[in-house]
């Protein structure tokens, strides 16, 4: 009984003692509590987002300054002629039309040095004949050659045929020769296959490409023009 009373007294005293104790304010809540707690994954996400944006920006700048300026093709304007890529050397050679014959080279006969040869007399005789013949040539009258009536039509836009993938995989080559006309609008019409070797797809590709060619306006062709596409796989 006495023990129990003492226990109760202890409880009471303990309670009183505890009430008298004043706990200090917690600094942790003051300093850390007001700040916004950012979870670790959010920090990571923000960091990677910034990284992504920064690297994108850098790459965008690099590409902006590194890329060449692309000018849009102007077909009917007078300003620009597009540089045209040529597929085969056949197309590369410009068509030059000679209006006059080249001057005839003058043949200068040098006196043949006579050397101590066993048949010296015969040689000298032959040289005389040659000189005579040359004199005949020099006096030759060349008839006037009529100027060939060939138009020089240069396309404003050349489109190269696409090499069909299936054909390229087979590594098949072929040659397609097409003839065509140019109408007043500068468009290519009446494409005909003159000669075709190899795959049919090549013929299609050549026709498709040719149909996109453009010539200057009001310069329709008098006759038919021809073009040769040479498909080769290296």
């Amino acid at each position: 009984m006495k023990n129990n009373e003492f226990e109760q007294e202890l409880n009471e005293l303990y309670r009183q003692r505890k009430e008298l104790v004043k706990a200090p304010p917690i600094d942790v809540l003051k300093s850390e509590g007001k700040g916004v707690y950012v979870p670790r994954y959010l920090k990571f996400a923000v960091l990677s987002l910034f990284g992504g944006v920064a690297s994108f920006g850098v790459l965008a700048l690099i590409t902006h300054f590194a890329a060449p300026k692309v000018q849009p093709p102007v077909i009917d304007g007078t300003a620009t002629l597009l540089p045209v890529e040529i597929a085969s050397p056949d197309l590369d050679e410009p068509i030059t039309i000679k209006t006059s014959l080249p001057p005839i080279p003058k043949i200068v006969i040098r006196p043949i040095e006579t050397r101590s040869m066993p048949n010296g007399t015969e040689k000298i005789h032959a040289a005389k004949d040659f000189q005579q013949a040359n004199e005949d040539i020099n006096s030759l009258v060349i008839p006037e050659v009529a100027k060939p009536n060939v138009q020089q039509l240069i396309p404003l836009l050349k489109v190269l045929p696409e090499y069909p993938k299936s054909v390229a995989r087979k590594k098949a080559s072929g040659v397609v020769r097409l003839s065509y006309e140019v109408n007043a609008k500068g468009e290519v019409i009446n494409i005909k296959v003159e000669q075709a070797q190899g795959e049919r797809l090549l013929r299609r590709a050549a026709q498709k490409a040719l149909s996109q060619w453009r010539y200057p306006k009001n310069e329709s062709s008098q006759g038919r023009l021809e073009v040769l596409f040479d498909f080769t796989v290296s």
Binding site: K18, V21, A23, P24, I26, V28, L29, E32, G33
Partner: peptide, 16 residues
């Protein structure tokens, strides 16, 4: 932090 603040309110006194 408000949850921690509640815990502090509950247990700061006995702990101290």
């Amino acid at each position: 932090p408000e949850y921690l603040a509640s815990l502090v309110q509950l247990f700061n006194q006995p702990l101290f």
